[in-house]
Design a protein around this nucleic acid. Structure first.
Lengths: 155, 155
DNA sequence: GTGTCTGCAAACTTTTTGCAGAGCT
DNA sequence: AGCTCTGCAAAAAGTTTGCAGACAC
């Protein structure tokens, strides 16, 4: 597999966790481990509320999840996605070979497909150069109707 | 360029306004005309708060702008964009040749460049087919550092 | 005149923040 | 023990909604 990342992705993110947290004088807490646990069991982006809902109730405050996601994002352990509804969604980095990827979302059932395809790099380069921009990246998500929802008349 | 849009966007939006509103038993009101006026003077996506700020104060309530944007969006007179910060932005359809287009946004100064380039249509087709999806569209925005901001050390 | 719109105020949602006590090392 | 983290509650910020009066046709 073509992956520019140097770390061993087969290692569970939890293994990296200790080291990465230590660097920043951060602690390994029950809440953070539990959050990563939920993310590890779901291969698609989740909202903070969804993560909260998948934790045993009373186990972790919603505010703690918001704070944890900021931290985990800074540590590059999770990636933030935006499906256009103004609600942040997070996915574990390493669940897919490369951190950068996109999604195909069903507008009926909200089902998500993880995509390998990406915006052509050399076209992005051309756009950047043509406009004098540097460090150009992109946000890209696809929306459509999945096979199942095409059949169901209602919904 | 690869643009899947079939409609003719060259007609001025205001000309369409009367007809389109009539169809739905809607009125042409001062507030709506004023909002379109502001949008016509700005070629980049604006937030509702920005639109509100550009209107003579006391002229139009923020709630009215929110309601108007929903209406104008339904009538396809305005297009909604999402720059990833959870704030809706709107741009007049017809300000650019094709309704469907994307932006290149400076992460330092928030400057916006309107782009002609689009995600390759036949690659999108392939993604749709490979996953059994139909009616596939996409949201795509680019982020980088503009020429001016590359020079200014601070900021 | 009739039905749609608007302003105002209140509610709702997502996200952030202050603070005191609990937890990790 | 020392500093970080968490829960709770309150506060931002964007957006939506109910209602009575104003306005378009």
């Amino acid at each position: 597999m073509n992956c520019a990342c140097h770390s061993d992705h087969s290692a569970a993110p939890l293994d990296d966790l200790t080291g990465r947290l230590r660097e920043g004088d951060r602690r390994i807490t029950g809440a953070r481990a539990r959050i990563l646990d939920v993310l590890r069991r779901h291969s698609h982006p989740m909202t903070n509320r969804e993560i909260h809902g998948h934790l045993p109730r009373g186990t972790c405050d919603l505010a703690t999840i918001y704070r944890s996601m900021h931290l985990l994002e800074d540590l590059s352990l999770v990636q933030r996605f935006d499906f256009g509804d103004g609600i942040a969604r997070f996915e574990l980095v390493g669940a897919h070979k490369s951190g950068h990827h996109h999604h195909l979302i069903c507008i009926k059932c909200s089902g998500v497909v993880e995509l390998e395809e990406c915006f052509p790099a050399e076209l992005e380069q051309r756009i950047a150069r043509a406009n004098g921009f540097t460090s150009v990246t992109h946000k890209l998500e696809f929306f459509g109707v999945c096979a199942a929802c095409q059949k169901s008349p209602a919904r």
